[in-house]
């Protein structure tokens, strides 16, 4: 293991990590503080004026000082929608990863510790789940959901649905990682010692083995947040994700896409840049975390 101070030291000696961390921090702050700092509340129809629609960024001819990055077809400021949309994207990403982690860690822990037919059964289940593409599963589930409920109900529950669908579709990644670590930890003597003490299997699994497998879980969690955000963006782009009146980054890109040929490129471009920055910073941080926490890649000084 690496101590916390060494961890911090490694972070501040790596320019890529600092860069990714700063970008992520700015985006998260922007999303969390959106209701306070956004120039406009894009969810409030009273603040929108259809006369403001499709304005270019403020420095362009025809731009308006109120809308730094221009407006979309409904007169919402692109900057404000990005601020709120980033929050929704992050919420879905983190929520989906929590669902994945809960499912995956539980099943991976049981599979690895119990072994035998339970292990075979759970891992074949994981294989089947992985052979169905996440996107395909999500499209089917969400299309059914959209067809089954009216638009208002759908709008209310879309976030929960997206979190559940992406969470359930991606559990095998956690399960496999946890299982393989458990197989390694299970043979160590502290597990024998815990059994000799007379602890029940449940306590040994959750209290003794799980804390020793959290390093890889931490790494894939970071990368899976990025993955979940991408999946959500793809679904929204296909019209199956967040509704356009509560847009995520993906639905913003989609709503602007219709206007790109009429010259209103800013509606699509800016949300897309933010999405790229968000996913890239998460992935870079995940890679960095993996390198730091992997003792085989460790440099001499720690």
């Amino acid at each position: 293991m690496i101590s916390f101070s060494a961890f911090v030291k490694r972070f501040f000696s790596d320019p890529v990590a600092i860069g990714a961390g700063v970008v992520l921090l700015v985006l998260v702050l922007m999303a969390v503080l959106a209701p306070l700092i956004a120039p406009q509340n894009p969810y409030d129809p009273l603040q929108l004026d259809i006369m403001d629609s499709e304005m270019p960024p403020s420095w362009k001819p025809g731009g308006d000082d109120r809308f730094l990055l221009g407006t979309d077809a409904q007169g919402r400021g692109v900057l404000s929608t990005i601020m709120y949309g980033t929050g929704i994207s992050l919420l879905i990403g983190v929520g989906a990863v929590i669902v994945q982690a809960v499912l995956g860690i539980t099943l991976g822990l049981i599979a690895g510790y119990k072994g035998g037919w339970i292990d075979s059964f759970l891992m074949r289940l994981a294989d089947i789940q992985l052979s169905l593409s996440t996107l395909m599963m999500a499209i089917i589930a969400l299309a059914l959901f959209q067809a089954a409920f009216d638009a208002n109900t759908y709008a209310d529950y879309a976030i929960i649905m997206l979190i559940m669908v992406i969470g359930i579709a991606e559990w095998p990644k956690f399960a496999r990682t946890v299982r393989s670590s458990v197989l390694g930890e299970k043979k160590k003597e502290y597990v024998d010692a815990a059994r000799v003490i007379g602890l029940p299997a449940r306590r040994i699994m959750w209290g003794h083995i799980l804390p020793n497998t959290l390093t890889p879980v931490l790494v894939i969690s970071t990368i899976q947040v990025a993955e979940a955000i991408m999946i959500e963006a793809s679904l929204s782009f296909l019209g199956l994700g967040m509704p356009t009146d509560r847009p995520s980054l993906g639905s913003l890109i989609r709503s602007g896409f219709e206007f790109i040929f009429s010259g209103s490129w800013w509606i699509t471009l800016y949300p897309a840049l933010v999405l790229i920055a968000l996913v890239l910073s998460l992935n870079l941080l995940g890679d960095w975390l993996r390198d730091v926490l992997n003792p085989k890649l460790r440099r001499g000084e720690d």
């Binding site: 293991m1 160590k188 003597e189 502290y190 024998d192 010692a193 815990a194 059994r195 000799v196 003490i197 007379g198 602890l199 306590r203 209290g207 003794h208 804390p211 020793n212």
Partner: peptide, 30 residues
């Protein structure tokens, strides 16, 4: 009976204690 009326001491104390739990946690748990 395990760990209560019969306990066991292992060979290598480097690996018989769980590396991520404090001594106190492991003792109190027993």
């Amino acid at each position: 009976i395990r760990g209560n009326r019969i306990s066991m001491i292992f060979q290598d104390p480097m690996v018989t204690l769980n590396p991520v739990l404090t001594i106190g946690t492991q003792m109190i748990e027993t």
